[in-house]
Write a protein that binds this DNA or RNA. Sequence first.
RNA 1: GCUCGUGUGGUGUAGCUAGGUCCAUCAUAGUGGGUUUUCAUCCCGCCGACCCGGGUUCGAAUCCCGGCACGAGCACCA
Length: 493
Amino acid sequence: MAEEAPHLLEKREKKERRTGLPELKNAEKGKVVLRFAPNPNGPMSFGHARGIVINGEYAREWEGELILRFDDTDTVVKPPLVHAYDDIPKEAEWLLGYAPHRIVIASDQIPHYYEHAERMLRSGFGYVCQCSGEAFKVFRVDKTECPCRPNSPELNIELWGKMLDGTFKPGDAVVRVKTDMTLKNPALRDWPALRMQDTANHPHPRPGIGSKYRVWPLLDFQSAVEDHLQGVTHIIRGKDLMDSTRKQTLLYEHFGWTYPETMYWGRVKVHEWGGFSTSQMRRDIEAGLFTGWDDPRLPTLSALQKRGITAEALRAFWVELGVTQKDISVPLSSLFSHNTKQIDDEAPRLAFIRNGEQVTLSGEHPTSIEVDVHPNHPEQGKRAFDLTPPHVWLESQDLGKGSLRLKGFADLHITDRTGEIQSIDRQDNRPIVHWLSEAQSVDGTLIMAEDGELIELHGKMEQHNYPEGTMVQLERIGYGRVLSPTVILFSHS
RNA sequence: GCUCGUGUGGUGUAGCUAGGUCCAUCAUAGUGGGUUUUCAUCCCGCCGACCCGGGUUCGAAUCCCGGCACGAGCACCA
């Protein structure tokens, strides 16, 4: 028993609550290789961030490497975008806090895939199939072998040549991996590895690639071969790719390779956004429905960045969700609360008066007032309000309250547009409101993205010299990011 | 239809591999209060969950069987 089940004899250690990411199986410090493989066919979305963060954090934790791989092997259905090849690495570095260790572009690796395809054909575990997709579907359902399956390696090589030289046209032939047509899972039966694409009419957008190749690998073949070439040890991906793992494992067995450890995550939806598709976003942006990839209404990484969501908040958010296979739907407030923790301690306070009404002060009062830039950090300095012209701006909503206290200044009673100073010290529990001196006010705009709409609130804003990109807290409104001296993009409350 | 996977509070998540120490963790949301001259931050409290039914066992969130629900794959897309 001691040999067969030693754990039964041991006293089990007290369980400790796990924090952070689940443990990586079979991982060795310094020898872990992970990859994140997006298709550069559109903006990096919120969802892509999960792939970057989870893989990237594991790489960090295990002192391993992270490969950023562009799976750009479809020029017709999902044509790549040239500038994505530049944008994605930058966004990945921003999000991770380090640059991916390696960048691999599938369209640069075609010769390697050809070489493996040929090896497959010569070794007899792959064949060129001239059945139509429709026809093959019948074989797959009926668990019967297609007539091309018994082709000799010699014939396969000959047919492969016809694919390469263009004798065959797209749709005429594909290369299949020979698995077993009686496999329980229909998805695994003799799956397609490479097909032809009309790159004359649909050239690959990268210079040097263009119409160079007629035959292109499909995801399962390309990914499997590339993972092996790069020495990937762990694959973490969506559970929609579970059957891909099984297909690729079959291919690895043919080649005599060992498949990496694999983990999956489920689908994530954001309450406020619902489902979103890269292709749809790309169409909408191209149609001018949005200002660009970073339009604050979009669930793209660049939009979130522009909106002032920090990389740290995004990382904390995704790590907290972990790597479970459940399909989940999360509220944005969860991300925002992480962001608040990141920015509040630094964010200077600023007044923004929506629907401003000017009020003239009457009675004795100082000619200038100073308040803290940050209530918890006096060392950040003071904000000065000059009251020589005795005019202040208040939000019209607050005006109706009659008696109120101007934050850090005085108790006021308002009738019409006149504010009678009743006391400089606080005398009672009247509501405290934010305000702005006429002398320090400028016309400002607060841009808010709500329910898919872009709303511009025009109001009176406190003068400031904060550079673009500064995260500020608008008193009683919420956090925002400085876009220009007079424009602030609302982040969240 | 076939195949695969997942079901813990409103939302996420820990615990499940090796059953007890779990009247079930943490976070977020909600709610009540404290600090604060912001409806911010911070602090304290409360609220609220093991999909259902059997079985094994002294003991089941955890193991077994059967349901049910939800999701995904079955593309010459990724």
